Amino acid sequence: MITDRSQRWRDRRASFVSDDSIIDPRRYAVDVIDHATARAFVADHHYLPRYPAAQVAVGLFGPGTGGCASLDGVIVFGVPATGAVITRHTGFADAARGCVLQRLLCLPSVAANGESFFTARAFRLLRHARPGIEAVVSFSDPGVGHCGCVYAALSGAYRGRTRARTVLRIAGETISERTLSKIRNLETGHAGAIDQLVRRGADRPLSGEHPRVWLDRLKAHGALTARRQSPLFTYCFELTRRARATGRRLPRLAYPRRSEVIAQHLFAAHRSDR
């Protein structure tokens, strides 16, 4: 079945790698990369091409042509939409002790088990680059067929599902609540957030128009559309002894069943076709 294979991305299109081939760690290297390189890779290949509010980006380098290494995967650790994402799922009172795994993708050229190999080493580099970060929260979207198999393979603590919520989308892409909050409340970075929507086809705010009114106008004219987002599966990786001790107070649930994920994915696909 398709769920017995590893999902990969190239040019924002999914493909699946047979588990018959297993990654050879001796042929790959993992290292921190600059955000410009990571941003370009995500934009070219990931189904969510927008680059998140990133803290650390890590690259997977494989054997390229002509004896040169090629960038075959990227992981981006970033800032959560709110501090509550960290405190709720890690148990830490200080949200700065955690971050979110915002993007994880490998190209089809990477053999099976590549994601778990890559992610485990990326966690080590994250701890070295940001020693204050002791836990990582990650989400998988069953609406697009993701159940978090990689996270389960790495023994991430499954915390359960998020609540279903309504999100705003433009040109088929979801706009994060953090981006919308910056615009509505004129927070630092709101100008860049407005530019983000304009690049995706929105008209610029009128002269003297408050950004909150501008967002309402975009919704009224159909440039911003509301969509009900299915609950996401939530995982937490406790990277230190203190994080593991803190996390004992939180639920560690049985991992989701693939059959459940397939059913939700088919349901989401059926709704999008209506």
Rank of each mutant, 00 (worst) to 15 (best):
T3D: 09
T3C: 00
D4M: 04
R8V: 09
R10Q: 14
F16V: 05
V17G: 02
S21M: 13
P25K: 07
R26Y: 00
Y28K: 01
Y28N: 01
A29H: 06
I33Q: 03
I33E: 07
D34C: 09
H35N: 08
H35K: 14
R39T: 12
V42N: 08
A43P: 02
H46C: 06
A54E: 13
Q55N: 14
L60Q: 08
G66A: 11
L71N: 03
D72N: 07
G73R: 03
V74H: 02
I75N: 05
V76L: 09
V79C: 02
A84T: 13
A84K: 14
V85P: 02
I86N: 01
R88Q: 09
G98V: 06
G98P: 04
C99R: 01
V100F: 08
L104I: 11
S109I: 10
A111K: 00
T119I: 01
A120W: 05
F123S: 05
F123C: 07
F123Q: 01
R127H: 06
H128F: 09
G132C: 03
G132V: 06
G132W: 03
I133F: 00
E134K: 03
V136I: 08
V137K: 10
S138C: 09
G148H: 08
C149F: 08
L154C: 09
S155C: 00
G156A: 12
A157I: 02
T162E: 10
T166R: 12
T166D: 12
I170V: 13
G172Y: 09
R178T: 14
T179C: 02
S181Y: 11
I183P: 06
I183D: 04
N185M: 13
G189E: 11
G189S: 04
G189H: 06
G189M: 00
A191M: 09
A191C: 08
A191W: 06
L197D: 03
V198P: 03
G201A: 03
R204D: 10
P205E: 05
P205V: 12
S207P: 12
G208A: 10
L215Q: 10
L215K: 04
D216W: 03
H221V: 13
A223Q: 15
T225V: 15
A226Y: 13
T234E: 07
R241I: 11
R249L: 14
P251W: 05
R252Y: 02
P256F: 12
R257E: 15
V261R: 10
I262L: 14
L266E: 15
A268N: 13
A268T: 15
A268P: 01
A268M: 07
A269V: 15
